[in-house]
Amino acid sequence: MSFIEITAFLANGFVISLIIFAVTLIVGIPLGLPIAFCSMSKFAPLKAVAKTFVWIVRGIPLMLQIFIIYYVPGLLFGNPIFSQIDRYIIRNFTIPHDGGLTQMLLTNAGGLVAVLIAFAINYACYFSEIYRGGIESISKGQYEAGYVLGLTKSQVFKFVVLKQVVKRIVPPMSNEIITLIKDTALANCIMLPEIIKQAKELAATQALIWPLFYTGVFYLIFVGLLTIIFGKVEKKLSYFRS
């Protein structure tokens, strides 16, 4: 295989990594909000449930959570939902056999869904803690200043607190999001062909070990882009101090 062919083969894997990355953010960022509000709730049972949930999700390795989501429906309820997705696709779609991205996605759809669920829940919990920290770091004086001006609770949150929270959570969120792209490699524990799995495939079938190290370049370039974007966001919010 030529260098370009190998790059293309790995790039296909990185597209899967990017799909996991993007879907986790699209679902996890909003999903973190209700979890954060529940864990700050004054209603004790709700708070306890939220806190326990976050404790479990943050306390167990993500790899194990992928296994749990992937296998437990079949083991416990006799309903291997993710392999059923695969079977459904095999039955209803014509799968090309060119080793391309479409084939990779169609033959791994079930596993991908399981990974996406595990990642979205896991990251939502981490995000919720960042949100909670951000919201709780805003001084009581800001709320009170809003209230004495006749603002409602939701107006105070929307017009006074929110932007300050956003400013404060940008650095920890950047950190977490950079960690996420690298965590996508965990998907290969259920044989999902993300970029590292693709490189291992090359090692097994072509006896090539260097592509494994070459995958680092993909991550580095992507993290470089993210760093530039986060730098811009931070700069945009630097006009005020809070």
Partner: peptide, 10 residues
């Protein structure tokens, strides 16, 4: 008017 001003920084 508060001791610590409590202006909205943004």
């Amino acid at each position: 008017v508060f001791q610590s001003f409590n202006l909205f920084p943004q």
